[in-house]
Nucleic acid binder design. Structure first.
Lengths: 139, 139
DNA sequence: TCTTGAACCTCTAGTCACTAGAGAGATTAG
DNA sequence: CTAATCTCTCTAGTGACTAGAGGTTCAAGA
């Protein structure tokens, strides 16, 4: 049995975060020692690794809760899990497109600034004030 | 003089958000009518357009507060504003790289799922549990 | 067995950038 | 003057944690 500190060390997830995950139902309530401290087994470590990896891949805790629910019914079709993954991928793709437009604007804006003048006629500041000058449709 | 509702309509920034911006000092405290309602002038509309645009470009409200401070000293060098814009651009670039790695992983994971099997041996679920299977370094 | 210090417990509050809602007062058009 | 709309302040909620206070338990060494 692992203490919460050991679980934290092995999983790379911070102690308060583990308690938070328990609180919101992402982790099952841990067993307790005689003195009321949490005790974990290897299956908890696996679950936590799953959660951590899914978080790194950008899933929300809500989405992760759905994935966990699927995991707990090993006889159900896995089509749903595939759907969740594809939806997540689409979210990421959309975000990339938006950020690329942003980068284009920020490049345009930064490149207009030589750093020689004063803020009174600063290209950066006036560009920020005038969305009409933008070349893309960053919302 | 504009009411907060008119300012909201013209700027596209919601009424509670305008009040919030005042509260945290992004907007100056508005003048008030005899009945204690906020009244704005065109300069407030300009400031709000600036804030909105900078937000759309991903600046934090903190960063925007810095930009506004620069704006209010039209005699100072604009190099600092250029620096802020370039730093913002770098943040966006980094974020794009990270998201591209994510997308690659999510593609790999989704493509492994045909939707035919059961969750018991689902490629999506096992991939999420096993970071070692990843082909990129998404943190 | 006792002691010490690290690790653990719960609880509250803070982060960022808002959003939602309650209940009361102000303004404006007809 | 009235009705409808707008505005006011205040509190609380969002997501995914993080920080800190104040108290308890554990494990290792003497």
């Amino acid at each position: 049995m692992l203490s919460i500190g050991m679980l934290s060390k092995r999983s790379g997830v911070k102690v308060p975060t583990i308690r938070y995950y328990e609180e919101i139902g992402i982790l099952n309530e841990a067993e307790r020692s005689a003195g009321n401290q949490r005790r974990y087994r290897d299956s908890d470590l696996e679950r936590l690794a799953f959660v951590k990896h899914a978080r790194q891949l950008g899933f929300s805790l809500d989405g992760i809760a759905n994935l966990i629910a699927l995991q707990e019914h090993p006889d159900r079709s896995c089509a749903e899990a595939g759907e969740l993954a594809r939806a997540q991928r689409q979210l990421v793709k959309d975000k990339i497109v938006r950020l690329q437009r942003l980068e284009q604007e920020l490049t345009r804006i930064s490149d207009g600034c030589t750093g020689q003048g004063t803020t009174g006629d600063c290209y950066v500041l006036s560009s920020l004030g005038d969305h009409g000058a933008c070349v893309t449709d960053h919302e």
